[in-house]
Amino acid sequence: MTHHVPCRALLFDADGVLVDSDAIVEASWTRWARRWGLDPDDVLARIHGRRSADTVPLLIAPEHQAEANADIDRSEIEDAGGVTACPGAADLLASLPAGFWAVVTSGTLALASARFVAAGLPAPEVWVTADDVPAGKPDPTGYLTAARALGVPIAECLVLEDSHAGLAAGVAAGAAVLGVSERALGGGAPLVVRDLAGCSWSGEGLEVQRSAVLG
């Protein structure tokens, strides 16, 4: 048995949905926190689903923010080779026709591209990254921008997200949302899946195996 989620395009978050970067992200930010004299646990509690440009100002004095942001961006790119594809991501992307999907990520284009290469995933025709929007998630601009680039009304798009901030961005944009991983539980998505292994493209939307659904 499956759940049918009708849509004309899929708008993916990257980290935690398509690429498994959790361990690498936490290692990069932990080293960064120690270099800047911060509590790593406090830093790690703030980072998921946010742009580094939005996280750093919460932690660093204004006069040092540019340096600190460049430091974490450089560190994450250096560590990008350690990421892998999330379960089901490669198969689902391979099944999608050109122009039916985009990636909306809180990372920079350089970082997202490096992680996709390391994970062996194809680059999307449409990237919307931290470089392209004035505000990060939960601001809806990234998802609205991706839908316009694909030429699909946002109401006919499905956002796939693991973070609560990302799910909120999808809802605010006016898209349907699908939660991915346990991190998405409690984030307002009507359906949350363990990963993409139980998801397939039907041509008229996403088919979700009931066995893949959490909660």
Rank of each mutant, 00 (worst) to 15 (best):
M1I: 06
M1Q: 08
V5S: 10
C7F: 03
L10C: 09
F12T: 10
D13H: 01
A14D: 11
V17E: 12
S21K: 04
A23F: 08
A27E: 09
S28T: 14
R34K: 14
R35L: 11
W36F: 15
L38A: 11
L38Q: 13
D41R: 14
V43M: 13
L44D: 10
G49W: 05
A53I: 10
P57F: 07
L58M: 14
L58P: 11
L58Y: 10
E63S: 14
E63T: 14
H64F: 09
Q65I: 10
A66N: 12
E67W: 00
D73R: 12
R74P: 09
E76T: 05
E76Y: 01
D79Q: 09
T84E: 12
D91H: 11
L93D: 03
S95H: 02
L96M: 05
G99Q: 07
V103L: 02
T105I: 01
G107Q: 01
L111F: 03
L111N: 14
L111A: 14
S113M: 06
S113D: 15
F116Y: 12
G120M: 00
A123K: 08
V128E: 06
V128M: 02
T129V: 10
A130W: 01
V133C: 13
G136Y: 08
K137S: 08
G142H: 00
Y143I: 04
L144Q: 13
T145A: 13
A146K: 00
A147G: 01
I154A: 02
I154P: 11
I154K: 02
I154Y: 09
A155S: 13
E161N: 05
E161R: 07
D162A: 02
D162N: 12
S163Q: 10
G166S: 07
A168V: 04
A169I: 10
A172S: 15
A172F: 12
A172H: 08
G174T: 13
V177F: 03
S181T: 15
A184F: 02
G187D: 07
P190T: 08
P190A: 03
V192D: 06
D195W: 00
A197W: 04
G205L: 03
A212F: 00
A212G: 01
G215P: 12
